[in-house]
Amino acid sequence: MSALVELVDLSKRYGEAAALQPTNLEIARGKTTVLIGPSGCGKSTLLRLIIGLTTPDGGEILFNGDKIDIDAFRRRTGYVIQEGGLFPHLTARGNVLLMSRHLGKPEQESAARLRDLCQLTRFPDALLGRYPLELSGGQRQRVSLMRALMLSPELLLFDEPLGALDPLVRAGLQRDLKEIFARLHQTVLLVTHDLAEAAYLGDNIVLMNEGRIVQQGSIVDLRENPANEFVSEFINAQRAVLFA
């Protein structure tokens, strides 16, 4: 059983419009799965369904083969979003330690974990006392990542984590993320609209359109054996970026 998370006929409608058609997907343990597709294709809806920010209209989510209890599940996952996910009234340290303090974990243990995470994410210790507004966009995303990793989650979820960063910072963070995922053997589900990012980080790329999965596989699979016209169009549209 290699799948950590399994989606069975999961679906969601907003009024008349189907945001997600009944969908099946396995998220492989220790791998990075990337959801990609044009705006409105249902990739973010899929992610929000998994973390319970949206309730599905049909189907179910299995975690380690079992149905999930959402509160317990949330504490075994980490969640990083594009911008604004940090709490502005807490320092970087306060943000990262929020949950461990809430759960009453020993301070010393948490402090040691925080030091490790700073090294892992290349975040300078000296900046831990700063508030989100005093940090750069890249630094904020590193704090977000530390917060997500703090409780050693089994699953890491990313919703366009690098979308708002400038290209240089973005490239640096992509490199660091890849290294971190590899080192931790982390199971990751990442949403992006950038094929280069998907190709660079993803072991399994899931291309979506109009609320359904069109094709999944490695970037080579998608390029060499497109399932239909849409897949080749989507790949070619971003080709210049990919193979420049």
């Binding site: 929000r48 319970g52 504490r75 996952t77 969640y79 594009q82 911008e83 604004g84 709490f87 979820l157």
Partner: peptide
């Protein structure tokens, strides 16, 4: 309060 902040607070697993 911005939606991303709400989502983060919920996704962290706070009651």
């Amino acid at each position: 309060i911005a939606q991303p902040i709400r989502d983060s607070a919920t996704a962290l697993g706070l009651e």
